[in-house]
Amino acid sequence: MLDSNQIQEIIPHRYPFLLVDKILELEPGKKAVGLKAVTASEYYFQGHFPQEHVMPGVLIIEALAQAGAVCILSVDANKGKTAYFAGINKARFKTKVKPGDVLTLEVEIIKSKASIGIGSAIAKIGDKVAVEAELMFAIG
């Protein structure tokens, strides 16, 4: 398990853009499972939406990408590098994410060659799928 300080040793994201609170499970280069506790004090709820707080889908995708980056950058050959978005495919948003929800962020690397790869990503609230997508990354 990795806490937020250990996550920040692997990926460059910092407040207010670090969207993974902890990593529960990590198989470097293969799989990561992380958590994001969504609170009412998140900066984006000031404008999305003031009358009904809903976590923006793009930030859920970003949280998944950060969990995937922890996975791929934990490989010895990638330490100290940055994982960049190269594409998003098959993204589906299935339920709203609101304050009080705890997102489980699951990313499995399904293809990796040289500095390019694809991760299968699912964000869940309990057993309910909130978002699923394929995320393409490039190591730089």
Rank of each mutant, 00 (worst) to 15 (best):
M1K: 10
D3H: 11
D3V: 01
S4H: 13
N5S: 13
N5V: 13
N5I: 09
Q6H: 09
E9Q: 15
I10Y: 05
I10Q: 01
P12W: 10
H13V: 05
H13L: 01
P16G: 07
P16H: 01
F17Y: 12
F17P: 11
L18Y: 08
L19Q: 05
L19R: 00
V20M: 00
D21E: 02
K22Q: 14
K22V: 12
L24S: 07
E25H: 13
E25R: 13
L26G: 06
L26Y: 03
E27A: 11
E27D: 13
P28I: 10
G29K: 03
K30E: 06
A32I: 09
V33N: 02
V33M: 03
V33K: 05
L35V: 14
L35N: 10
A37W: 10
A37P: 03
V38Y: 03
T39Y: 12
A40H: 07
E42G: 06
F45W: 04
F49I: 12
F49P: 11
F49W: 11
F49L: 14
P50R: 13
E52N: 14
E52R: 15
H53A: 15
H53R: 14
V54S: 05
M55F: 07
G57I: 00
G57R: 00
G57M: 03
I60H: 04
I60R: 04
I60S: 04
A65W: 02
Q66A: 03
G68A: 01
G68L: 00
C71I: 09
I72C: 06
L73Q: 01
L73R: 00
S74H: 04
V75A: 07
A77W: 09
N78M: 10
K79T: 09
A83Q: 02
Y84K: 01
I88R: 06
K90Y: 08
R92I: 04
K94T: 02
T95R: 15
V97R: 02
K98G: 01
P99I: 06
P99T: 05
P99W: 08
G100E: 05
G100R: 12
V102R: 15
L103M: 08
L105N: 01
V107F: 00
V107L: 03
I110A: 01
K111T: 11
K113W: 11
A114W: 12
G119Y: 00
G119W: 01
G119N: 04
G119T: 08
S120V: 11
I122L: 13
G126Y: 04
G126E: 08
K128G: 05
K128A: 13
K128D: 04
V129I: 15
A130Q: 04
A130S: 11
V131T: 13
A133C: 15
A133Q: 05
E134P: 10
M136P: 12
F137Y: 14
A138T: 10
I139G: 09
I139T: 11
